[in-house]
Write a protein that binds this DNA or RNA. Structure first.
Lengths: 115, 115
DNA sequence: TAAATACTTAAGTCAATGCTACAGTATCAA
DNA sequence: TTGATACTGTAGCATTGACTTAAGTATTTA
């Protein structure tokens, strides 16, 4: 699947496709948290959470720093924005095309209210 | 991975994580297309494209209809919007929290310009 | 200093993915 | 009716992915 050079968007969408990882992102959108805080509500071992965290960090969606024995994680909002933007752009093209159709229909058979 | 009941967002993010499938979405954002039109620019067999198409349809990102021997595919903009919204909401929470921090800092040590 | 805490790392397992090849099945066109 | 089009469907294969268990390593706390 990702045996070629994976691009940023591949990694981000892939990371967001897992409900556990999305739960972690949801928690982090409320503010920084430690690894065990992220793990607490999830039905899996700490080990698994650490692995999910790695996926999120490699996707650039989360960054973390260790102080003492606690690793604190924070959301990387810029990557979220990049993902949002990709979708917004596709929607924009779609709507443009839709507008063109409307314009065409309007000139072909103008509605009363548009005359 | 998806051995439990997969939710809509799981499927959508998963579908969007593949560059080939994103290319198909990009093409469809410009307007409807047949399966072979979608396949033409992609470095894989038609068979593979059909399989990707199935993933996109199951995620609700694309719908298609067959007329004669041609299957025409169109983008399902509403699912795109749902994905966009999930991200926008996380960003909103994040920014709220950021605003609160700013407000706190402002009352703790007001800057000249804010007095 | 001994015990608890908070991770960290490495196997190992098993299902899910992304392909290709190959063998169809309906249209449509001459 | 013969051939080309435009898919469709399935088997097989190599990778990836999402865990768990088990065995650490630093830091704090008592």
């Amino acid at each position: 699947m990702l045996q070629y050079q994976a691009e940023p968007l591949d990694l981000a969408f892939q990371a967001l496709s897992d409900p556990g990882r999305r739960a972690m992102i949801e928690r982090l959108s409320l503010g920084p948290a430690s690894v065990s805080e992220l793990a607490k509500p999830l039905p899996m071992t700490l080990s698994a959470v650490v692995q999910h965290l790695k996926v999120l960090e490699e996707a650039g969606l989360v960054k973390s720093e260790k102080v003492g024995r606690v690793r604190t994680c924070t959301l990387e909002i810029r990557t979220m924005t990049r993902v949002e933007r990709w979708i917004a752009e596709r929607k924009r093209f779609w709507e443009q095309q839709y507008d063109q159709l409307e314009a065409y229909l309007a000139q072909a058979a103008p509605k009363e209210e548009d005359k």
